[in-house]
Computed example of a mutant assay.
Amino acid sequence: MARWRPLPAGLDPAVVRFVVQLRKLKDDSGLSLPRLAAKTGYSASSWERYFVGKTLPPAAAVEALAALVGADPVRIEVLREAASRAPVDQQPDEQAADEPAGPRPAASSRTRRLGRTALTAGAGAVVGAAITLLVLSPEPANAKPQALVVKPRTVYTCTYTQRDGRWYAGNSTTTSDILEVDMWGPEVAELQCLLQHAGFSPGAADGNFGPLTETAVIDAQKAHHLDVDGQVGPQTWAALRG
């Protein structure tokens, strides 16, 4: 596995999450930068900029990298879209001058909608640096064990009722709370029950927003022709309760 250097502290957390996943795909490929360039049609210097957070890669480059390792491109595309929406103080072109002018892997119509670059500063600096050090920095041999945040394990039930044309599962009546990965509580359990009711399995209704729940949310957003971001807001609640 490559020994990655820490990302710049000024990157927005959404950008950090995307670049970390991009680096993982590169590690999984086992390819050097020159070999990666040869197989994707994007230059080694361009990939180097992508991996250090200087430039957001084009959607086609991300798809090509995911294809090399047999990874599902949906999750990395969702992360890339979130990164493209981060605040920016500059927006360099996606295509760098030294990238080859020849044919490249074509992006799907869905991924062509994704944004441009996402270098940021300001409020995300401290959080971005913390995420980077946590994910990428090796732990010293003499490091003391850190306390872990343990998510509560509560048994939730799904008791479906319909009122005023809306479905409820007995855990929460919210129609607007914003939910995303790593959150937990009765609102998440309500989401999981509604996903099950709509035919999108999130696994058990345990109140923890994990990868299975995120995948189910993405599938539901696709089916209802909503913005696909893996997060739950008023539009997704309305679709599931309707």
Rank of each mutant, 00 (worst) to 15 (best):
L65T: 03
P58I: 09
R80D: 02
A2E: 10
D206A: 07
E180A: 10
R49A: 03
V155L: 15
Q146P: 13
T111H: 02
T40N: 11
A106G: 05
T120N: 14
P138L: 04
K24G: 13
A130G: 13
G230K: 01
Q196S: 11
R110D: 14
V232S: 00
Q221F: 01
R241G: 07
A9L: 02
P73L: 13
K144M: 04
V16W: 14
A143P: 13
V19M: 15
G122N: 09
P138E: 12
R3S: 14
T159M: 02
P105A: 15
V15C: 06
P100Q: 05
K54W: 06
E81F: 12
T175L: 09
T161E: 03
F209E: 13
E77W: 02
I218S: 02
A60E: 10
D164K: 08
V188T: 05
Q90D: 08
V15Q: 14
S84D: 10
E180C: 01
K54T: 08
L11C: 06
D229Y: 05
R116L: 11
R17L: 15
N171T: 02
L136C: 05
P105Y: 08
A83G: 12
P103N: 09
Q235F: 05
H197L: 00
P34K: 04
Y42Q: 03
L119H: 01
G30C: 09
A220C: 11
D28R: 10
F200E: 15
E94M: 12
P58C: 14
E187H: 01
S32D: 06
A216W: 02
Y168I: 03
A118W: 07
A64D: 05
K144P: 08
F51H: 09
V69R: 01
A121S: 12
V135G: 09
T236M: 07
Q90S: 10
G41K: 03
Y168L: 13
P234W: 00
D28C: 08
L114W: 04
I178A: 12
G124A: 12
A82K: 14
P57F: 07
A82E: 03
L195T: 01
N171Y: 04
D182H: 05
E190C: 01
S176I: 13
V19D: 15
A61R: 04
M183H: 00
S109P: 11
F51V: 15
L195G: 02
S45H: 06
T175S: 09
A204Y: 11
P211C: 11
T157S: 14
A130Y: 15
V88M: 09
G128Y: 09
S43D: 09
S137N: 11
M1I: 07
R5T: 00
A82F: 00
A2F: 11
T174F: 01
R35P: 00
I218L: 13
T213M: 12
R241K: 13
I131K: 05
D89L: 10
A82Y: 02
A223P: 15
S137I: 11
A71G: 04
P152N: 02
L79E: 09
S172N: 14
S43I: 01
L36S: 07
P100V: 06
P140D: 08
V127H: 13
S108P: 06
V74M: 15
R75V: 09
E214Y: 04
E77D: 11
A141Y: 10
Y50L: 00
G242N: 15
D93P: 15
W237S: 05
